[in-house]
Amino acid sequence: MLFKMIQLIINGQLHHFDATLSVAQLLESMTLMNKRIAIERNGQIVPRSEFGEQTLVDGDQLEIVIAVGGG
């Protein structure tokens, strides 16, 4: 039996998923869907409007950021 597992590097950490998933599905799984975040995928910004459309594949590197206090 073969199943397609994918590896994503999210904020510098390795994560495994059973199948490819959309950005929106990823955020839902991490309870980040309703938070103010921004995402960079392999060096490119993922616009909010494309969260449902972009499908993550094996080896994708994501940065998911928020605003924090700073000078």
């Binding site: 999210i10 904020n11 510098g12 950490q13 994560h15 991490m30 309870t31 980040l32 938070k35 103010r36 975040i37 921004a38 940065e63 998911i64 950021v65 928020i66 605003a67 924090v68 206090g69 700073g70 000078g71």
Partner: peptide
């Protein structure tokens, strides 16, 4: 007012207040 941009903690409490 200035703010910084940083990685979010994955899996942290969803009820934590956000700066924004």
């Amino acid at each position: 007012i200035t703010i910084a941009v940083r990685r979010t903690n994955i899996g942290q409490s969803p009820d934590e207040p956000n700066l924004l």
